[in-house]
Design a protein around this nucleic acid. Structure first.
Length: 467
RNA sequence: UCCAGCGUAGCUCAGUGGUAGAGCGGUCGGCUGUUAACCGAUUGGUCGUAGGUUCGAAUCCUACCGCUGGAGCCA
C-alpha cells in the first residue's frame, strides 16, 4: 500500500488526517490545529490536537525538556498551536501514531471561559455557540459530511450531462403563490419611503427572495435539455419545526423531453447515489452518528441502497391508509393532503422504505403541474423517506399553452406577469419535468441528525438570525 | 400560528412553601505512557424577566421573554 502524500508548502503543512494515515515513521513533520485536551504526566504532557480534517485527533507528546514547556502547561482547551516533531509509533493503546514534538508554537491562547468541554454537550447548548460548535466532534462530522454531500450532488449531475444554472436569488414573481415571501428593498426606502433619492422600488417593481428557481430552470431546460440548480432558498413562513428553516438549500433538476416516470427514476437514483457516496466517503463520521445520534442509521442507509423504492399512486396510498388498522387523528380521504402521520405510517410501518407517491388530485397542487388524461389528477410526485417525510417534491410541467393558461385563470394569476413563462410553451414547447430536493433534509437523512438547525452552519429560523 | 413541556453554577441536572445542592468543568496540590485518566482540596448562583399570594417563594398564581417537542405548511 502506497503512502498518502499531500502537496505541502510552507504555509500548508500536512493535515492531521493525512498524518494519521501514514504507514511508517516520519521525521520533521509539521502540523497545526486546536487543542482538544491536555493531560500532564510526570515528564511530559499529552496534547490532543485537531485541525478539522478528520474526527480523529493527533496525540502530541510534549516533553518537559522543551524550552517552551512552561507555555505548554498553560495550554487550555481551544488554543491554537503549531507543532514540529517526529511521527513515531505510539506506545499507548488507542492510536497507532503520535507526534513527539521538538518545537511547539502557541499561536492563540484560550482561557477557562472556553465553553467546549471534552465531555458531552447537548445540541441545544451547542446551537447557542454556533461559532464554536464546528470544533466539536459532532458538528465537525456534520459539516464535513455537508461538504461531501454538496460535492456529490454536483458530481451526480455533471456525470449525467446536466448543466448547472444559477437562478436568481432576487425574484420579481411570487412564483406559485405558495408560502410566504421575504420582501427585498433598499435600506433607504425601508427607513424613509418619502426619500426622493431612493426609488420606492429599486427594481421598479416589488421584489422578493426566491422560494424556488424552478420557473427559471424551466427556461434553461428548454435550451440545454438537462439542467440543475443548487443554491439558497428562502421561505418566510412562521413555521417552527425540526424540519423547517427560513433559509435553506435546494437542488432543482429540470429535464426537457422527460415525463413523470423519467422524473421519478432520476429522483430515486439521486437519493440512492447520495446515500452510497456518503456511505463510502464519510464512513468515519457516519460511525460517530451511528454511535451517538441514531443507532439504526447504518442499517437504514444500507437498506435504502439494497432495496428498490416503492412507488404508488396517491389513490393507492389512500386505499392502503384506509384499509390499515391504524387510528389516525386526521381523516384519510381522497382529495385531502396526506398528513405527517400518514406519510410516517407508509414509510416507517407499512413499506419500511422510501416511497414515491404520484398522481395527486389536481385541486391540491399548483398551476404548473401537468394535467393527466383522467381529468382528475396531475403528474405530481413526492418522495418520502422514513424519519423525515417529504424529501423530494416534483412534477411533470404543463407544456400545453392553452391548458396552462386555463390553470392560471383558475388560480387567479396575472397572465401578463408570466408572459415569459408562457413563451416557453409558444416557441418549441416540450414535455418536461423536474423536482426539488431539500439539501438539509437529505443531510438529516444520511446523518440521522434530527434537527435541521443542526445541519446548517448558521441557521435562520423565525426569531433567530444571530451570528 | 396552535398544543404541550422546560428555563436553578460555565455544562448536565436534583431541589415542589422554611439556611442554594450534586456530578462534570475551572483552579491548587498529589500520582501517573495518559485516552471522557485517577486521588484530595477548592472555586463557582440576581433560581429567565416583571408583578402578585404568603410571616416566608427556586417552589404557588398571572403576564411576558426564550428554548424544546409535536401539529399545520412545505423542501
Amino acid at each position: 500500500m502506497s503512502e498518502v502524500e499531500e502537496p505541502r508548502t510552507m504555509t500548508m503543512p500536512a493535515t492531521i488526517k493525512n498524518v494519521l494515515q501514514r504507514t511508517r515513521p516520519v521525521a520533521d513533520l509539521q502540523v497545526q490545529g486546536w487543542v482538544r485536551t491536555r493531560r500532564d504526566s510526570k515528564d511530559f504532557s499529552f496534547i490532543e490536537l485537531n485541525d478539522g480534517s478528520s474526527l480523529k485527533n493527533l496525540q502530541v507528546i510534549a516533553k518537559s525538556t522543551l524550552p517552551e514547556y512552561s507555555e505548554v502547561l498553560r495550554l487550555m482547551t481551544g488554543a491554537s498551536i503549531r507543532v514540529h516533531g517526529d511521527l513515531v509509533a505510539s506506545q499507548g493503546k488507542g492510536q497507532a501514531w503520535e507526534l513527539v514534538a521538538d518545537r511547539i508554537e502557541v499561536i492563540g491562547q484560550s482561557d477557562d471561559s472556553y465553553p467546549l468541554q471534552k465531555k458531552g454537550h447537548t445540541p441545544e447548548f451547542l446551537r447557542e455557540i454556533a461559532h464554536l460548535r464546528p470544533r466539536s466532534n459532532l458538528f465537525g462530522a456534520v459539516f464535513r459530511v455537508r461538504s461531501k454531500l454538496a460535492f456529490a450532488i454536483h458530481r451526480f449531475f455533471q456525470e449525467r450531462g446536466f448543466v448547472y444554472v444559477h437562478t436568481p436569488v432576487i425574484t420579481g414573481s411570487d412564483c406559485e403563490g405558495a408560502g410566504e415571501l421575504f420582501r427585498v428593498s433598499t435600506t433607504t426606502s425601508a427607513k424613509n419611503p418619502q426619500n426622493d433619492d431612493a426609488p420606492a422600488e429599486f427594481f421598479g417593481r416589488p421584489t422578493f427572495l426566491s422560494v424556488s428557481g424552478q420557473l427559471e430552470a424551466e427556461a434553461f431546460a428548454c435550451a440545454f435539455s438537462k439542467v440543475y440548480t443548487f443554491g439558497p432558498t428562502f421561505r418566510a413562513e412562521n413555521s417552527n419545526t425540526s424540519r423547517h428553516a427560513s433559509e435553506f438549500w435546494m437542488i432543482e433538476p429540470e429535464m426537457a423531453f422527460c415525463d413523470l416516470a423519467c422524473n421519478m427514476d432520476l429522483a430515486e437514483e439521486l437519493v440512492k447515489y447520495l446515500v452510497r457516496r456518503t456511505r463510502e466517503e464519510c464512513a468515519e463520521d457516519l460511525e460517530l452518528f451511528a454511535r451517538f445520534v441514531d443507532k439504526e442509521l447504518l442499517t437504514r442507509l444500507d437498506f435504502v441502497l439494497a432495496r428498490p423504492f416503492h412507488r404508488i399512486t396517491y389513490s393507492e396510498a389512500i386505499e392502503l391508509l384506509s384499509a390499515s388498522a391504524e387510528n389516525f387523528s386526521f381523516p384519510v380521504k381522497y382529495g385531502l393532503n396526506l398528513q405527517s402521520e400518514h406519510e410516517r405510517w407508509l414509510t416507517e410501518k407499512h413499506f419500511k422504505s422510501p416511497v414515491t407517491i404520484f398522481n395527486y388530485p389536481r385541486e391540491i397542487k399548483p398551476f404548473y403541474m401537468r394535467a393527466n388524461d383522467d381529468g382528475k389528477t396531475v403528474a405530481a410526485m413526492d418522495l418520502l423517506v422514513p424519519g423525515i417525510g417529504e424529501i423530494v417534491g416534483g412534477s411533470q410541467r404543463e407544456e400545453r399553452l392553452e391548458v396552462l393558461r386555463q390553470n392560471m385563470r383558475q388560480h387567479q394569476m396575472n397572465e401578463a406577469e408570466y408572459k415569459w413563462y408562457l413563451d416557453l410553451r409558444r416557441y418549441g414547447t416540450v414535455p418536461h419535468s423536474g423536482f426539488g430536493l431539500g439539501f438539509e433534509r437529505m443531510l438529516m437523512f444520511v446523518t440521522g441528525v434530527p434537527n435541521i438547525r443542526d445541519v446548517i452552519p448558521f441557521a435562520r429560523t423565525p426569531g433567530n438570525a444571530e451570528f
